[in-house]
Design a protein around this nucleic acid. Structure first.
Lengths: 342, 342
DNA sequence: CTGAAAGCGCTTACAG
DNA sequence: CTGAAAGCGCTTACAG
């Protein structure tokens, strides 16, 4: 475990370390002959540059950090995949940390990444995060930051999002158009912008179509580990509270699948008795029965886009060019399946 | 973006860098007063040690690398979660790379991690990997390596596995016990040890129960991105080829779900006409209909265990203690659900 | 208890 | 075209 260094190559060839370094990096002021010799020897000795030393000199780690609320999650794992695919192309490595939806964890992970001197940070907020000082600090330290999906509008950085409000509007409108008159909503937690926006989209669709908004039709889910159970529980509660609901727009597919499971158990027919629209288009939504109508959320693209923005920012900072923060909005689409009518 | 260094703290307090460094690390030979002063100043200035410099000196990166075939995958994302949970406790960061089941990629990612000087590597083999020189090289360079799930028996390192053969035996036996006489098998690719072992378990269960093995009942799947489609296709082919099959043991849940979907479409009743057992216990197996009988594969625990072994090896190497490679076998269990009889 | 010095492995401006 | 030298930010054996 004593890796080869430039010094060893230099000694083998009886030339200076500086020349070896330059030869390896194809500096123009090194003779072809020397370059060849050096490269051969490096190959032979299986030389790999010591990243620490390089980083220390160049102040670049070629590593970025990624903080997400939850790893075991179809959407976020798609995002991860998009990020590392893109990062790889540009020679960047990705350190992945999980906040588990906790504000404290999120801060801790951020600190870790900072002391690792990552070149930039990509993150999606924890549900528990209501205070953004840790992010503002990051920005004032000029650490490139791009937020995606679960963002804070207030924080001054680049972002990749979908239009949650519009998507929710579309979903609810679709229920209305297919004949639903009394539409419930299983919403996400109170804090995150997404669940607020989805709720607002739901509400707007109702009012635009002259359906009175009834707060007793709105149920809250944590949308965490218990999503599936929450779906079942809320479905059950809904039936106890109301006997006239004929449609539900649900914040997340997994909760929707819980609801479907419970309705199935009780004998409520979907979509005949109650139509359901989910959100996210998890893979399993296409295989359950009935298949779930939902909003497709492009996780892989979001990951790619987020890395792209981050990369640009890193590059511009290095060149001391001015930075303009950008918000990229990705398209969603309604995927019509069997849990809704027509 | 000009982070605070020891030097700046030293200058502010007009003491030496060495003392600052020692004070921060609570060396016993620094006065209480100085320690206090230094720590206060460090806090005030928001000092974070420069990881590159520390690593360069200590030759430790406190970072490990993880290479898996696929990120968007219930089992592997559970493994990731287990690994980063454990790593965090020990102050390690995790760099995640994806081989996409390709041998070339796997080698490339390994090289990347090596030049990053990670303290150790955790990996699960790509399906495309048939040659293990890259791993042997790693080991001869004394880089701590732990393989999990998709391992190479030949490679001399610690491993975390399940008993695929026994689990497959249990699964097949369960089909036999529930009355199936003619049992097909959708197996994985030819190379990986897992799919070989699962196939052998299937075969053994048949022969132990006096059911003749019929190679025409064995269908191969790539088990990659197209798993679901492969399930559908193989189910379809199976019905064309044979009209007497009453049970299938399938290499992976996702393929099984594809098969169920196709049978459902065609009108074959599960489990009445054909019983199905999957493998892995993906979350969605519990929500499709009928729910899928399967073998539970403990991904999270596997991740935790793999990190534990790696950590021990890293530690022992640092202390120059002898290393004994260990193979940990984790328990699986049969999850009985509605896709099989009784 | 404090500090000067060497060194980790590299890069790069500069001299020759 | 080649190499000596300085320096990135830290740690630690050693001297005082």
């Amino acid at each position: 475990m004593n890796p080869v260094t430039l010094k060893q190559i230099a000694e083998t060839l009886d030339i200076s370390i500086a020349t070896v370094s330059k030869a390896l990096k194809d500096y123009p002021d090194v003779s072809k002959k020397t370059k060849l010799l050096v490269k051969e020897t490096a190959e032979l000795l299986n030389y790999k540059p010591n990243a620490f030393a390089v980083n220390l000199r160049t102040k670049e780690s070629k590593t970025i950090g990624l903080i997400i609320p939850e790893v075991v999650h179809h959407f976020f794992s798609s995002v991860i995949k998009g990020i590392i695919a893109r990062a790889e192309k540009k020679g960047y490595l990705v350190i992945i940390l999980q906040s588990s939806e906790s504000y404290e964890m999120e801060k801790k992970q951020l600190d870790l990444l900072l002391s690792k001197r990552v070149d930039g940070i990509l993150m999606s907020l924890a549900n528990g995060t209501a205070n953004f000082k840790h992010l503002d600090d990051l920005i004032s330290q000029e650490v490139p930051l791009v937020m995606f999906d679960k963002i804070a509008k207030i924080v001054n950085c680049s972002k990749v999002i979908i239009n949650d409000r519009m998507a929710a509007y579309t979903a609810t409108k679709y229920l209305i158009d297919s004949g639903c008159k009394r539409i419930a909503h299983f919403r996400g937690p109170l804090l995150p912008q997404n669940s607020i926006d989805r709720f607002l989209g739901y509400k707007k669709a109702l009012s635009d179509n002259n359906i009175p908004y009834d707060p007793s039709l709105v149920y809250i889910c944590e949308c965490g580990e218990r999503s599936f159970e929450e779906g079942k529980e809320n479905a059950h509660k809904l039936l106890e509270d109301h006997n006239d609901v004929d449609g539900i727009f649900i914040n997340t597919d997994l909760v929707a699948i819980g609801a479907i499971t419970e309705f199935h158990r009780i004998g409520v027919k979907i979509p005949e008795d109650i139509s359901i629209v989910g959100f996210s288009n998890w893979f399993m939504s296409s295989v359950i029965s009935p298949t779930l109508t939902t909003i497709d959320q492009p996780g892989y693209e979001m990951g790619k886009e987020a890395f792209k923005l981050l990369y640009k920012e890193i590059k511009r900072r290095k060149e001391n060019l001015p930075i303009k923060f950008k918000t990229v909005e990705l398209e969603t689409k309604l995927i019509k399946r069997a849990s809704t009518r027509n």
